[in-house]
Simulated assay, not measured.
Amino acid sequence: MRFVRFYENASVSYGILEGDEVIQVEGSIYGDTRLTDRRYPLSAVKLLAPITPGKIVAIGLNYKKHAEEVNKPLPEEPMMFLVSPTAVIGPDEPILLVNPENRTEHEGELAIVIGKQATDVPVQDALKYVCGYTNCNDISDRLLQRKDGQFTRAKSFATYKPLGPAIVTDINPDDLAIRVRVNGEIRQDSHTSDMIFNTAELVSFVSKVMTLDPGDVIITGTPSGVSPLHDGDIVEVEIDGIGCLKNAVRNKIT
């Protein structure tokens, strides 16, 4: 199933994406979802970020080749930090570079959307707590990241967390090709099988530190090939089985 969140006729709704049509649903995407008879052409609605998370838990250095790229040893356990959910935007919304003079890079990532409250869950049960998966572009200001020695500020500016286009429930998250293109040129080209810690291990690990609630998001780290973004760029994060998250890049006007 492919859940989308969309704007139509001055209201925000959830729907199921089937081909080029959106079928509006009622109820909760985390439980009792009911189809309605309201159907819209995809071209007639505006897709929004598929979730408005209560919190975003980010995982750093979780791809083997990315660790090699930055010349760091493989972590013994997931490196976890928080970024602000106020940074979230949806498909086709502009990424606004707050400090265009700084090196600010894309990071295509698989995002896990939590479906039910999870506390201290074992690895073997972890995926039972997942609603589905979507794309994330973890925009990162490298100068601030180095200056601060931690990642929250560098990754939490408004528009720095595009999510979408859909939450997909019926895929194997550990067997997906992931690519990032900038102006049509492939910059990142990898596979979630290269992750050091798989999705179940990440959900379990985070749930042993903090309670995860429905709608929370875990972004699972980025592959090798990160590169800087500039005013006028078009960046696309594509994950097989989920779709393509496309955003233009603009300098923020102050």
Results as ranks from 00 to 15, higher is better:
Arg2Asp: 14
Ser11Arg: 14
Val12Gln: 10
Ile16Arg: 10
Ile23Leu: 15
Ser28Phe: 00
Thr33Pro: 02
Thr36Tyr: 02
Thr36Met: 08
Tyr40Cys: 09
Leu42Trp: 03
Lys46Ala: 08
Ala49Asp: 08
Pro50Ile: 04
Ala58Ser: 08
Ala58Tyr: 00
Ala58Thr: 12
Val70Lys: 00
Pro75Trp: 06
Pro78Leu: 07
Leu82Ser: 14
Thr86Glu: 15
Pro94Ala: 11
Leu97Tyr: 04
Leu97Gly: 07
Asn102Ala: 12
Ala111Gln: 08
Ile112Ala: 02
Ile112Gly: 03
Val113Asp: 06
Gly115Thr: 09
Ala118Gly: 12
Cys131Ser: 13
Asn135Val: 13
Gln145Cys: 06
Arg153Pro: 08
Arg153Val: 05
Arg153Leu: 13
Lys155Thr: 01
Ser156Trp: 05
Ser156Tyr: 00
Thr159Met: 04
Gly164Val: 00
Ala166Leu: 10
Thr169Asp: 01
Thr169Met: 05
Glu185Trp: 00
Arg187Asn: 07
Ser190Tyr: 04
Ser193Val: 06
Met195Tyr: 05
Ile196Val: 14
Asn198Thr: 13
Glu201Tyr: 04
Phe205Asp: 02
Val209Arg: 12
Thr211Ala: 15
Leu212Cys: 11
Pro214Cys: 08
Gly221Cys: 06
Gly225Pro: 00
Ser227Gly: 15
Pro228Phe: 06
Leu229Glu: 03
Ile242Asn: 09
Ile242Ser: 02
